[in-house]
Design a protein around this nucleic acid. Sequence first.
RNA 1: GGGCCUGUAGCUCAGUUUGGUUAGAGCGCACGCCUGAUAAGCGUGAGGUCGGUAGUUCAACUCUACCCAGGCCCA
Length: 947
Amino acid sequence: MKLKDTINLPRTGFPMKASLPNLEPRILQRWDELQLYRKIRDLRAGSPVFLLHDGPPYANGNIHIGHAENKILKDFIVKSRTMAGFNAPYIPGWDCHGLPIEIKVDQVLGRKKAGMTRVQVRRECREYAGKFVELQKREFIRLGILGDWNAPYLTMSHRYEAAIARTFGQFVREGYVYKGLKPVHWCCSCRTALAEAEVEYEDHTSPSIYVKFPLQSDPSLLDPALRGRRVSVVIWTTTPWTLPANLAIAFNPGLEYSAVEVGDEVYLIASELVAATAEGCGFKPGRTLATMEGRKLDGLETRHPFLDRLSPGLPGEHVTLEQGTGCVHTAPGHGHEDYALGKAHDLDIYCPVDGGGRFVAGTPHVEGMRVFDANRTVLQLLGDRGALLAAETISHSYPHCWRCHKPVIFRATPQWFISMEHRDLRGKSLEAIQGVRWLPEWGRERISGMIANRPDWCVSRQRVWGVPITAFYCETCQEPLLEPEIIDRVVAIFEEEGADAWFSRPVDALLPPGTRCPGCGGDRFRKEYDILDVWFDSGASQASVLGHRPDVPWPADIYLEGSDQYRGWFHSSLLVGVATRQGAPYRQVLTHGWTLDAQGHAMSKSRGNVIEPQEIVGKDGAEILRLWVAASDFREDIRISPDLIRRLSDGYRKFRNTARFMLGNLSDFSPGEHSVATPDLEELDQWALMRTSQLLEEVYGWYETYEFHRIYHRVYDFLTVELSSFYFDVLKDRLYTAAPDAHPRRSSQTVLYRVLEALTRALAPIYSFTCEEIWEHLSTMAERPASVHLARFLPAGSLVEGLSSQSLRQLDNWQVLIRVRSTVLKVLEEARQAKFIGNSLEAKVTLSGEDGYAPVLKRYEAMLPALFIVSQVELDAPSAEAPFFEEAEGLRASVSRAEGGKCERCWIYSSGVGSDPDFPAVCLKCSSTLKELGVTPDQFGPGMAAP
RNA sequence: GGGCCUGUAGCUCAGUUUGGUUAGAGCGCACGCCUGAUAAGCGUGAGGUCGGUAGUUCAACUCUACCCAGGCCCA
């Protein structure tokens, strides 16, 4: 036997090395076997509900780092609310319809698609989406996200598709829906509308022309200097064929315009562009007769150069000085901004071009022509009328069809809209925003600005993979038939068969028998084949998911998504909520920023700086990814890099080792049997409980305010500063050298146990895997729930329960003692650097303190050696001449060699060593401990010599 | 180009709301101790003038303007 065998070293099966990539799957499997999510639901049934409503990620591709951030944050919230005692279900969802999937499927199908029915294409899309739902689901589960993965919501489920159609029906019933025109990218060769994603920009040669629009109104109204002059507004365009559809000219109200004399004429041009225009047209600008602000040109009357109509001046903020003349030809049927301007000023959305790209019958001069061919005719017309100032060709980037690679045009097409003005949807939405708690607060301003300025919601798409707009058209008079009652019937069919029924069933099997056109009485109808915008789908999630069960109420407590969703999901959900349920579907909206690379740049394939969550999970573990999210302030953009991951892994090890130390020192501790009552604990142990209690209070508060990064940092500091380097370090002597059952040892074990218990629960929402692993080890000591996630947070106050206010006040002395300790450590370091001592136990400290210190020092004199981990402390004024001397804040300390011999058992120097003939190698304290343990000298053999 | 947001030590975060002592922490780093938490533990120390410029003020990291860098959403 050796002396070392008589001390209590830590013992535990909790490994130092986590091997998270191995540990995590094991724990996930346990949760699965336990049916943990269901168990939590059962346990919390009847508790107050807290509902986070999941925003559905798009069911395409693997999850990326932004998905990981988003879902991990949601998991923090759901788990922390659950452990705080709430019933907090989490129903994950997926966004399944939409163009990106349809495009992918198109690519796979290739030419085959042409021969397929809509139903068949939709089946392919459904299968594709379903595949990625399963893939992403596995990836999310792997991150430790707890949720109802067996029953997620899918926007392509029958139930959800019916809810979308029903929601649309509500908009119809309340009169929000109307049909109008809107310009979209249009391929004349494929005869189809193209989404922005289907347009490729390629170089294209276009005409570049300057055209005069003669002033109709009296020019002297603009400026007296123009009296009697021939004044024209000069515009520039690269699409002459849109001139037949010109309905206005836009001027920027904030820019300055000049009336420039050119020959016997006067041209109106933005002042800063006069020179460039003159060069482009090849004229010499003469005198500037007048200048005026653009806002003065509002309502100006010009004549169309070759059609018998006026083209009024309108104020357009979009007009810039980048090119052209500052006077912008506006054809509301053929351009985005033209359209917006036209809508704002009640212009006709005029588009005389058919689906094949030909001018429709009755269009003067160009009837029946292809638009690009019409360019020549228009130039001719302009030339004949003297309106063409210059014509050349330019090569520029121009949108082309991704399929046939022909140049596309902007063409106004019939679309379905939801009016923002009807029933004051805009105003009510703005009002609803005020009642929502936005975090960060600027979110309120951001979404308000968007709602205030957005145009009517265009909800139709000329696509296949989505929920149809449930309208019909009378075959007799071509009028649309959009009736709430008919939609109700269709919704019922969708409930059973999904939206595919729209495409698979003939009209008669959708319409109620005997339906007649309210306009002409016709009884033959065809279906609308437009589908709904996917933002309408996701906006309707509240209708499908919320409000059907008591534990999943409408409105939700919180929505949490990236800041791009102010325009996306928060926005569409708000409009749906306000229109259909008179309010916002959320009480709080929390947003997170973007994930950037180490340099703070956005990640992209082209930059090559993409970091995949799967790689981190496989190499370092999902727990590290969770810590990354926890350590960062997610309200702003956060960075990720291999270096950062390495640091987080280091930090993780600290957490792990701290827990391991506690578990190791509890190997012979049975809480039921050995716990010391709180008032009877050693004072330092009471202090540790008090500090932990304060920590918990902060942590719980930060869970409520979603400031997880504060939790991470505060806990980390606590583990390092308070526990590891101070409390534990001081405790070691007691834990190791006292008799196992000695009161001071049981006292510290009691606290280790309670602190570990409290921290394990408090941190389980973040360190979900590791806390579960610790929990397993704690479970060997006492009966407890099968998972830490079934437990609740320990109330902060419970740790100090039983301590009188007087005892608590007394603990303040430890603040003073810690300050003293730091000064003493400085002197010890001096002595160590000088090789005067190595281990601090070789030292004796002489110490004195002024006013505030003296009484405390006196009172705790007996504890000081243990506190400083030295062999002796003498309260006396140290000599400033001593070789190792430190003075700070009224404290003076010096170091000398410890007196007496070194105890071979506890390593503390004392004069008592050698005085017990039975155990000559140890100090008096240790010899009595040995005797208490029933150890006899002969058990050691001859090895135990006197020092 | 517009709306909104961000910029404190090498890293991740405090501090800025109500301007006022030498701007804090942990990690990392350097040097050292220990070998009874050991691919651990402990100590000491060196690092920033608060993105830049100009202003307001007795005084600014904190207020204002502009600029630079970066982000989201639009155009």
